[in-house]
Design a protein around this nucleic acid. Structure first.
Lengths: 368, 368
DNA sequence: AACACCGGTTCAAACGTTTGAATCAATATA
DNA sequence: TATATTGATTCAAACGTTTGAACCGGTGTT
C-alpha cells in the first residue's frame, strides 16, 4: 500500500550511484557547514546525479532527525467564508518569510473535523498553531493537549484571552462607531440595525460602538428596528437573515432611512429584501456592511462597508507565533489581545436620506 | 530552535511511566493486530497513562517506518477564487473518507510559490497530487519530477491530457450552448458576448457552444459585440473587464438585448458598467454569468448563470487519484479527460427583451 | 518425560536523514 | 624523524516508530 517503497529516490541511491558515502551525499545536498570541506568536484558530481535522479529529500526522515519540522498549522473554521482568505494569505506571507511551511486545514464549520484536524496538527508536530475562527466557534478540549505539548497557539477573529490564548481581532467598537458616524454625517437620523448573533464576540462591542455614536449624534434607535441574527446557522445564512429582516423592518411601519448590517453578506441580503419590496439602494434607503469581502465590492451598487485589515491581521498573527516559537524556553508569555483598526470604505450603497419615507408604498412592482 | 526536543511526549515516556517496553506500548496505542494478545489490564493501563500525558504519535516517525504517509497534496493556483472552494471541499470529502489527509496549499497565482509548494508536496511524500488551476496556469517542469517519483497527479479546471495528465473539467461547449439556448428561449436575438482569454482552455469550447446554438436559433452575433478578456491579469480582473466592455458595447451603438459574460465576476462587472450608464438589469438588458460562485448568488438582481458541479468534480478527482494510488504497480494508466455536465441556474438577471433598445438614452442619471 | 502450543511480552532491526567524532593520507612544523 | 595540522571522507548513533522474530513460563497432549 505505502507507495514509497517502490517510488522515491533516497540518499542511498545517490550514494551508490556516485561511489561516495551516504554521509558525504547528505552533507553536500543539505548544504551543511561541513560541505565547505568537500571537494568541489565531488560536490558537483553528487549534485548532478541527484538532479538527474530527481531526488527530493524526505521531509519525514529529515524532520525526525533534526527534531524540527519548520511547520505552522493554520486551522480555518470555515474557509468558504471570504473573510478567511486574506487572513490566511497574510499568515502565509509571514511564515514563508521565516522559512516555515504553512499546513492549511479547513474545518468546514464541523466541530468533528475541527478536532480531527487539530489532532493532525499535533501529530505532524507543527511548531505553532493559528486558528482562524470567523464564525461561532465552540472551544474544544484539545486546546488542553496543545498546551500540554507546549505548542504556541493563537487565534484570530475571536477573543480567547480569558482562556489564556493570544487573540487578534478588529476593534469592533471602533468599527461600529465609524459606520454610525458615516451615516450620521450623511444626515441619517433614523437607522435600523441588524446585530450579530450573541455567540459571536464581535456582536456586542460593535453594538456598543453604534450606540455610543448614535447617542452622541442624536440619532434615534427604535428598538423595533434593532434585530439580531440567529447564531446557530453558518455564515452564509447572514444573507438569508438580511433578506428576512429587511422585510420585517418594513412591516413594522417604522420610519428609517438606513440599515446598518452586521456584515457584508447580511447587508447584501438587506439590499435584496428591499429590492423585493420595490425599494432601491441608496435612493430609498442606505445600507452598510462590515468586513469588506469580495461580494460587497462587486455588487451593484457597490457596498459601503467597514474594512477589516485582514491581511495585516494574518501577518501579525504569523509574527506573533513565530516569536513565541523562538522563545519557547522562556515558557508561555502572557496571552495578549491585539486589536486592529477598521477603516471606512465609502462606496455607492449609502447616500443622504431621501425625503420619502422608507416604508412608503413600493414604486415599482416587486421582484420575486 | 527545534522545539520538539523539550516538548512532545514519546512512546519511551509512556514505556518508562508504565513499566512496559516501548514495543508493547506501541502495539497497544497503534492498535496493531498483535494488541489482541496483550492483556486487557495492560492495555487499559497503558491507555490511561498515554491519555494523561497527552500523547500524540509522531506522524513523522510513524510514516517513516510505515513507509506510507496517507497524504494527498492539494495545490490550488489561487484559493481566493471562489471557484476553488467547493472543488477543494469535494476533494477533502473524498480523501477523508478514504482515511487520507489533505495537504492544502495556495499558490496565490505566483509561479514561484507554485513551484516551491510542489517541492514541498514531493518532500512530504504525498502519495498523490491534485492541482486546481482555475485560471491561467503555466506548466512547470516540476511535473517531470513528479512523474519521476511516480506520484499520481491529476488536474481539475484545465485540460492537460496532452501532457499525459488526467484532467477534470466542465463540458464548456455544453455550458455555452445551455446559456445561449436560455437567452434564445426568452426571445433574445441580438446578444453580446464576452469571451474568456485565449490562454484559458475554457474559452474556446464555450464560444463554440455559443456559436452553434446561436446559428441554430437564428441569433445574430455581431462581431463588434464579441469581445475578449485579456489573459495576463488575475481572475479578479474579470470584473474590471466586464465594466469596461459593457461601456464599450454601448459605445458601438449596436443593438443588443443581452450580454453573455465569460464568468460570474465578469457578468457582475457588466451589470455595474450598465448601471453606470443608467441601464437596469434585467429590464433594459439581460446578463448571464458562468460558474455560479457566491457573489453571483448574493447580488441583486441574483445572477442567472451556468453552474459547474464543482463539488462533484472535486470528489471525482479524489476518487481518481486514490484509485491510481491503489494500483501503483500497474504503472500509470492512460491519462483521461473527464467532462462534467453544467447546469442552467435561472435567477433574476435575465428576462425577455424589452421593446426599448439597450442603447437608447439613459433614463436615470448615471451612478459613478 | 518429551513435546508442541499459547498468551503475553520484549528484542532488534529498519525507515531516510543528520552530525559529532573518527579515520586516513598528505603536507607543514618542530 | 616524530608530531601536529589540514583536507576529504566515512563511521556510527540517533530521531520515534513499527513489526517479524524470539523469548519465556505455563498448560495440554502424547
Amino acid at each position: 500500500m505505502g507507495q514509497r517503497k517502490s517510488g522515491h529516490v533516497t540518499l542511498l541511491d545517490i550514494a551508490s550511484a556516485s561511489g561516495f558515502s551516504v554521509s558525504t551525499v547528505s552533507i553536500v545536498l543539505s548544504e551543511a557547514p561541513l560541505s565547505l570541506n568537500v571537494a568541489a568536484t565531488t560536490r558537483a558530481h553528487i549534485r548532478t546525479i541527484a538532479q538527474q535522479l530527481g531526488y527530493h529529500p524526505d521531509a519525514y526522515a529529515r524532520s525526525l532527525r533534526r527534531r524540527s519540522t519548520q511547520t505552522i498549522g493554520i486551522l480555518a473554521f470555515d474557509l468558504s467564508d471570504p473573510f478567511c482568505i486574506p487572513i490566511m494569505r497574510g499568515i502565509q506571507e509571514g511564515v514563508n518569510a521565516a522559512g516555515y511551511l504553512p499546513l492549511l486545514m479547513d474545518a468546514q464549520t464541523q466541530r468533528k473535523l475541527f478536532d480531527s484536524y487539530l489532532h493532525m496538527i499535533l501529530e505532524r508536530r507543527a511548531e505553532g498553531v493559528i486558528v482562524i475562527a470567523s464564525w461561532v466557534f465552540e472551544e474544544t478540549n484539545l486546546l488542553g493537549d496543545i498546551r500540554k505539548n507546549n505548542v504556541p497557539i493563537l487565534i484570530v477573529g475571536r477573543d480567547l484571552v480569558a482562556r489564556g490564548i493570544s487573540s487578534i481581532l478588529v476593534d469592533n467598537e471602533a468599527g461600529g462607531a465609524l459606520a454610525t458616524r458615516h451615516l450620521a454625517e450623511l444626515g441619517h437620523r433614523n437607522i435600523a440595525v441588524i446585530r450579530g448573533p450573541q455567540e459571536m464576540c464581535d456582536s456586542e462591542p460593535r453594538w456598543t460602538g453604534i450606540r455610543k455614536v448614535a447617542a452622541q449624534c442624536g440619532m434615534h434607535l427604535d428598538e423595533r428596528l434593532v434585530l439580531e441574527l440567529p447564531g446557530l446557522a453558518g455564515p452564509a445564512s447572514g444573507f438569508e437573515g438580511g433578506v428576512r429582516f429587511a422585510k420585517q423592518m418594513l412591516a413594522t411601519g417604522c420610519h428609517f432611512t438606513a440599515v446598518l448590517a452586521f456584515d457584508d453578506l447580511t447587508a447584501l441580503g438587506v439590499v435584496r429584501g428591499l429590492a423585493e419590496s420595490g425599494l432601491r439602494v441608496p435612493e430609498d434607503c442606505s445600507v452598510m456592511g462590515f468586513d469588506d469581502v469580495l461580494p460587497a465590492e462587486v455588487a451593484t451598487p457597490a457596498m459601503t462597508t467597514i474594512r477589516q485589515p485582514l491581511r495585516e491581521m494574518g501577518l501579525e498573527a504569523a509574527e506573533r507565533v513565530l516569536q513565541a516559537i523562538r522563545s519557547v524556553p522562556g515558557k508561555a508569555e502572557k496571552a495578549r489581545l491585539h486589536k486592529t483598526n477598521p477603516e471606512l470604505v465609502v462606496r455607492m450603497s449609502t447616500a443622504p436620506p431621501s425625503r420619502t419615507i422608507a416604508t412608503k408604498k413600493p414604486k415599482r412592482r416587486a421582484r420575486t
